[in-house]
């Protein structure tokens, strides 16, 4: 076991994919000579050359589409976006092309492609650079969506995503790149669609993903002080969602708090709440609780931005009101 950052875990996964599979190449804006906006591919161009590490013009629709075409021709492109907010510029390619081609060709053409993108607020980047559109993409059949919260999951999910024959959206919480964690030296993968129980508990199930997990951990500590035992679920995959694991947990605890790092309105947690209601409604001791970011464009001002985000006090308040715990 070695302790590395989430950034290093991604670098390890990308390097080994480039080294082990000649069909893998990485493409994106400033990933080569510049080294990547978040320095994920720093040094890659020098090591692997311009055929494997392709700098692109600022043309998201163009290079996402080119990635899709190359995947349809049998290559395994890893396309990096500077921000998941920029996916909007290439949304037509992601949804109408990457997600639909297999189905509308009657299964003839696969798109084995990974689109990596930093996501999430908290760095004072303002309305256009702070959004979390991984939740939108969960609605689209044909796409898989994953979002790791720690270095171990980042590496394991990246390996699975690159091997997956379907297009995978790999949402990286920008605030977690420096997060450290233990990663096995032995090869392992983490199956897409499998959530993880990070902590077992009996009184309430706390569910989140990505940078919601550190906050959920703090909530759990606060609850422990009040002798409330919480079970923590890290979704890891947002599409498909591991409903079996979620419902088993909620049926045991009888309570659920869902934390969305995206805006609350229309978020993936609304979908999960409905599923829990349908499948575990009889087991519930109270309403399913949901906390998300405020339904406003992301503000620049730090105080306003922090207030728009979820927080431990907000979540504790919600739990105290919802369950009288």
């Amino acid at each position: 076991m070695a302790e590395i950052t989430l950034r290093q875990a991604l670098q390890k996964g990308l390097s080994e994919a480039i080294e082990n599979d000649p069909d893998v190449f990485i493409m994106g804006e400033d990933i080569g000579a510049y080294g990547g906006a978040y320095a994920i591919t720093s040094g890659f161009l020098e090591k692997y050359g311009p055929d494997r590490i392709k700098d692109t013009p600022i043309s998201e629709a163009g290079f996402i589409g080119a990635g899709i075409g190359s995947a349809a021709a049998g290559l395994k492109p890893i396309v990096e976006l500077m921000s998941i907010s920029f996916s909007l510029v290439g949304f037509d390619q992601i949804v109408n092309m990457a997600a639909n081609i297999r189905y509308m060709s009657g299964g003839q053409i696969n798109v084995p492609m990974v689109i990596r993108a930093p996501t999430g607020a908290g760095m004072q980047l303002g309305a256009t650079h702070s959004q979390s559109f991984e939740t939108w993409l969960c609605e689209v059949p044909g796409l898989k969506v994953v979002a790791p919260s720690n270095p171990k999951d980042a590496l394991g999910l990246l390996r699975s995503s690159i091997k997956d024959p379907n297009p995978v959206i790999f949402a990286e919480s920008a605030g977690l790149y420096g997060t450290k964690g233990e990663v096995s030296e032995e090869y392992y993968e983490i199956e897409i669609g499998k959530a993880e129980i990070k902590q077992e508990g009996t009184d309430i199930t706390l569910i989140s993903y990505g940078h919601g997990i550190p906050m959920i951990n703090k909530v759990s500590e606060e609850l422990a002080k009040k002798n409330v035992s919480s079970e923590i679920i890290d979704l890891r995959s947002l599409s498909p969602i591991d409903y079996d694991l979620i419902n088993n947990s909620v049926q045991k605890t009888g309570r659920a708090l869902l934390l969305d790092t995206a805006r609350k309105n229309g978020g993936v947690m609304a979908e999960i709440a409905t599923n829990i209601n349908e499948d575990s409604g009889d087991y519930l001791d109270g309403p399913i609780l949901r906390v998300g970011s405020e339904d406003v464009p992301w503000p620049y001002n730090r105080k306003l931005e922090q207030h728009a985000m979820s927080s431990v006090p907000k979540i504790m308040n919600k739990i105290e009101q919802g369950y009288s715990l």
Binding site: F25, D51, A61, G62, F63, I64, G65, A66, G67, I68, G69, S70, A71, A72, A73, G74, L75, P77, D92, Q93, N96, M97, I101, M104, S105, I109
Partner: peptide, 24 residues
């Protein structure tokens, strides 16, 4: 014969990808 694409102009980046694969 790689489609048949119904969003006007959307087939062009896709096509560049096939050409990129040939070049690669």
């Amino acid at each position: 014969f790689m489609g048949g694409h119904a969003i006007v102009g959307a087939q062009m980046p896709l096509a560049a990808g096939f050409a990129l694969a040939s070049q690669y």
